[in-house]
Amino acid sequence: MYTQEEAKQLRKQFWILFGKRCKLVPELQDGNKKWVLYDTKITGLDLKFEVDRQSAKVIIEVNHRNEKKRLEIFEKLQKYKPILENGFEDGLEWDFLYVRESGEEVCRVFVEQKGFDIHRQNQWPDIYNFLIDNMLWLESNFMDIRDVLKEEL
């Protein structure tokens, strides 16, 4: 078991090594290409990685402060569900009411791999592969609809 400080350092090391691993991804080696993440060009919509003691997730998160706007964005995403789920054998999880640890309500569309534990360093290569492979798909699918989505919102 790790102390709180040790767990914090472990998480920091995980993400540092993840950044180094991403530099080896051919799709990310073209110039200064980086993950879209918070630069979606749509207010209140982000792409995210999340890893904890139970699983790893690659997420589209709708976190607009205005609930009506948040649900509107989520409904628009649902309209493009076939495009967003392209390449995901089992589809994506759609959660219109996810409550973060902070109590903030958001909407999420995600793919999850259970059984991963960030504290198990021997799992890190598999976690990195899961995160990279799935974010490449999710980001590509999102970019296919981003401009249309922006116009509709």
Rank of each mutant, 00 (worst) to 15 (best):
K76I: 07
F116D: 00
I127C: 01
V106T: 08
L92K: 01
D90C: 09
K48Q: 13
K76Q: 08
I118G: 00
K57N: 10
Q123M: 13
N141S: 13
V106C: 04
N134S: 11
S55F: 13
Y80A: 11
L84V: 07
K68Y: 15
K12A: 10
T40I: 08
E72Y: 14
D133P: 07
G103H: 03
F74K: 00
L17P: 05
L71D: 05
I73A: 03
K76Y: 08
E85K: 04
F116H: 04
V109L: 11
Y128W: 12
N66D: 14
G103D: 01
L47D: 03
L28R: 01
E50R: 13
L37T: 07
F14C: 09
R70Q: 04
V99K: 13
E89P: 04
I16P: 02
L77F: 00
V62E: 03
V148K: 15
W124D: 07
K12G: 02
Q4V: 11
N122G: 06
L77W: 01
M143S: 14
K8W: 09
E89C: 07
N141R: 15
Q78V: 01
E27V: 08
G19W: 04
I127V: 09
L97I: 10
L28H: 00
Q78P: 00
V148Y: 12
L153Q: 06
D46V: 12
Y80H: 15
